[in-house]
């Protein structure tokens, strides 16, 4: 009697005559759903890993080819052909049309020029920038800046900064007070680099935090910006005296006493 009652309860709850089949159906549906998703994830993971291994090899080969080519380009005399096909017996030093047309290869080539440029100065750096333009790779920068992915925008900004493309300064200005603070601080750094002055700091409409102060400090050091310009922005209510104080502290500049004095009256 008791057993039959218990049995009835279990069956009622878990597999009642009127709705039990449906419950079982749902449970099996979700069970097979999770199993299918798991199988899909495993297959995707294996496919992706294999693809990564292959891509890594191709990328390594392309990087080697472009580095070799760029080195030859800088060391050997230029041919009249501006597209960089040089008078060289070394086949590896040649670019083919695929290198210029294929977006994936163009991106790698642009990256290599950018990396090499960061290690050069003087005539060779200028030569490399000219070459960059000769290949029409500035389109890559515009694509990056106009990309919906904000990290691509930053990468584009870094290239503008590296190649000192002052004509793109309007593009950068759009992002100086952007709500994405990472994007904003990169735009500020690029402006500092292109302007070679601290003028952009007066345009900021928020107070910089320690990280952003560090980025500005780093830019001032890297681009050897005259820090006496700091005095020019003391009248700006936008930038914040806190920043000034930190910055003058960091540089241990003579302007520190002036900033401190001014702070007493704020």
């Amino acid at each position: 009697m008791l057993f039959s009652q218990l049995s009835g309860n279990v069956n009622d709850a878990l597999l009642s005559q009127d709705g039990g089949d449906i419950s079982l159906y749902y449970i099996l549906f979700f069970g097979f759903g999770f199993a299918s998703v798991s199988i899909f994830m495993i297959l995707f993971m294996v496919w992706r890993r294999r693809k990564c291994i292959v891509d890594k090899v191709i990328e390594a080969e392309l990087i080697e080819k472009y580095q070799d080519f760029l080195t030859s380009f800088l060391l050997l005399p230029l041919d009249e052909s501006f597209l960089g096909i040089q008078k060289s017996d070394r086949q590896s030093s040649r670019l083919d049309s695929k290198d210029i047309q294929d977006p994936y290869r163009r991106r790698i080539l642009a990256d290599q020029i950018y990396l090499l440029h960061s290690q050069l100065s003087g005539q060779q750096a200028v030569q490399l920038v000219n070459y960059f333009f000769g290949l029409g790779l500035q389109e890559e920068i515009l694509n990056m800046i106009n990309s919906s992915n904000w990290t691509n925008k930053v990468k584009g900004m870094q290239m503008i900064q590296a190649f000192e493309l002052v004509e793109y300064v309007d593009k950068i200005d759009e992002y100086v007070n952007h709500s994405n603070r990472d994007l904003s601080i990169h735009a500020i750094v690029v402006r500092l680099s292109l302007d070679r002055s601290l003028a952009v700091l007066s345009e900021i409409n928020y107070n910089l935090n320690t990280w952003e102060c560090h980025k500005v400090y780093d830019a001032i050091k890297r681009f050897r910006i005259d820090s006496t310009d700091l005095l020019d922005i003391q009248s700006s209510a936008n930038t914040g005296f806190d920043f000034l104080n930190r910055l003058t502290d960091a540089f241990n500049m003579p302007s520190k006493s002036k900033v401190d004095k001014k702070l007493q009256y704020v």
Binding site: L24, I27, L28, F30, G31, G33
Partner: peptide, 13 residues
């Protein structure tokens, strides 16, 4: 049947 189905669901999840 119900128990095994439930076990299958928990395992796959």
């Amino acid at each position: 049947p119900f128990f095994l189905a439930l076990l299958f669901l928990v395992y796959t999840f």
